[in-house]
């Protein structure tokens, strides 16, 4: 197996899609690592597991969970914790991440990342769940900032301060989705750069970029939807430059999950991320 024990490299990565298997293996450049959704690799066998084993011998793998419901009011699902433990045990991925969100209520899994009020009660619950998860999988996780379409009246924390506190209490790292910052900042009318300035960038282990759709709310105000179905928008690339200039180089992922394009288009997005990372190197050496 590829040595997954190192952290993800500060290179472009892509969300792995099975339709890109052959193209990716023929010429992966500039992709230096891959991210998979944990829940797609929890079957007993067959092609998904065989492909993942093969890819893990060649690329650092980031496992990204989309179904644990870390922010859920209910206890974490012990069966799902055991599945995550099993995956992390046999794959030994270079990174594991999950979301600041909930997706399961009682026994119903809603297949979406649902929002949380930033309160003391949420903070305590999220931290308890992260402690539990990190104990089970025996490794530090990264927690991702969500995209927001609305605000909770009861929130008492700003999101960057909330995530900083979670990281401080649990020791978890953070995954900074720069598109989510832009989407949330547009939807909730704040300055995305101020969000980056307030974010504990020293805790960030990975960056996400993805495309969003544009809509309007009931009053004609812009409402951006985090769809992962197109190219990363220009202002999000600009915000990436702003972020990297403050954080230094980081593993940077292109997510494209719906209307998945042919490989050359995804590789072109990864090259754009490579350029952003390379600019940083030249600035540092200059």
């Amino acid at each position: 197996m590829f040595d997954q024990s190192n952290h993800l490299p500060a290179l472009p990565g892509v969300g792995y899609k099975p339709q890109h298997y052959s193209d990716l293996l023929a010429d992966p450049a500039p992709v230096g690592w891959l991210e998979i959704h944990a829940e797609n690799y929890m079957g007993a066998g067959g092609r998904p597991i065989a492909q993942l084993k093969y890819l893990a011998e060649r690329f650092p793998i980031s496992v990204h969970g989309v179904g644990l419901s870390i922010g859920g009011e209910c206890d974490l699902d012990p069966d799902h914790l055991a599945r995550l433990e099993h995956l992390c045990d046999w794959l030994n991925p270079a990174s594991f991440s999950e979301h600041l969100a909930w997706s399961t209520h009682e026994s119903a899994f809603l297949n979406d990342l649902l929002p949380l009020p930033y309160t003391e009660a949420t903070l305590n619950r999220v931290c308890a769940h992260i402690d539990q998860l990190q104990d089970v999988i025996g490794r530090r996780m990264l927690l991702e900032n969500p995209s927001s379409y609305l605000a909770f009246d009861e929130s008492t924390y700003e999101e960057p301060a909330f995530l900083a506190e979670v990281s401080k209490r649990t020791g978890c790292g953070l995954l900074l989705d720069v598109n989510n910052i832009f989407v949330s900042a547009t939807n909730l009318n704040y300055d995305p750069r101020a969000y980056v300035d307030a974010f504990p960038l020293d805790k960030v282990g990975e960056i996400h970029l993805g495309g969003h759709d544009e809509d309007e709310d009931d009053h004609g105000a812009p409402l951006l939807i985090d769809s992962h179905g197109r190219e990363v928008a220009d202002p999000v690339w600009t915000l990436l430059d702003y972020t990297l200039a403050r954080s230094g180089p980081l593993p940077t992922l292109i997510e494209w999950d719906t209307d998945v394009p042919e490989w050359p288009l995804l590789a072109a997005e990864a090259r754009r991320a490579q350029t952003a990372l390379a600019q940083l190197d030249s600035k540092v050496t200059a």
Binding site: Y149, A151, D153, Y190, D218, H219
Partner: peptide, 13 residues
Amino acid sequence: GLSDAGGRPAGKR
């Protein structure tokens, strides 16, 4: 208890 940035009900959001 769900609002837009101006404190109006979240509605379509």
